[in-house]
């Protein structure tokens, strides 16, 4: 197989849609379930093994699976190409901002018991603070993995 042919084949596999309807339907049908599992793992991280990193990786896996099966062009609607890096910055910002908020309300950096939420005792404030920063970690990990995949693909 010569160079041009191999490049064409490779490009069809990496960028264009895969023609097999079985792969198409299976991947589209499976993706929402993987996303639901990812959200479950993220929100249930307080009570069972799980948390921000694992949930983010699962969400990224579902979107990368759609990228592989539908092709880059058709999966733009669920996650546009330009979105991941600003989203990752937003995730890191949520994390750092939570710490800064606690510092502005009189505690030390990342001390969640000083978060400005009334009617909650310090232990429950820590519970809420952990959930908020896990949200930031989830967004950051998810969009970073998608961005790395996109960039490796587009090179």
């Amino acid at each position: 197989m010569n160079e041009v042919n191999r490049d064409l084949l490779l490009r069809r596999h990496m960028e264009g849609p895969i023609v097999s309807p079985i792969v198409h339907v299976c991947c589209r049908g499976l993706a929402p379930f993987i996303q639901i599992t990812g959200l479950y793992v993220f929100f249930h991280g307080h009570y069972s093994p799980g948390g921000g990193f694992q949930g983010g990786v699962l969400l990224a896996a579902s979107i990368i699976m759609l990228r592989m099966s539908l092709g880059l062009a058709d999966s733009q609607r669920i996650m546009p190409n330009r979105l991941p890096i600003p989203l990752a910055a937003l995730g890191a910002l949520i994390y750092a901002g939570t710490g800064l908020l606690a510092m502005l309300w009189g505690g030390s950096y990342l001390d969640y018991s000083f978060l400005p939420l009334p009617m909650l005792d310090p232990a429950m404030l820590r519970y809420v603070g952990i959930l908020v920063i896990e949200l930031g970690v989830t967004i950051c990990v998810m969009s970073t993995l998608i961005s790395i995949y996109d960039n490796l693909l587009g090179s």
Binding site: G51, F53, V141, T144, L145, I148, N151, L152, S155
Partner: peptide, 24 residues
């Protein structure tokens, strides 16, 4: 190790990017 695994994945991505640039 939970944090180390995620950092390992990102390290792998960056090293692949460098390898792709070297090959180009």
């Amino acid at each position: 190790m939970l944090t180390a695994i995620v950092v390992a994945v990102v390290t792998l991505g960056v090293s692949f990017a460098l390898v792709i640039m070297i090959y180009k």
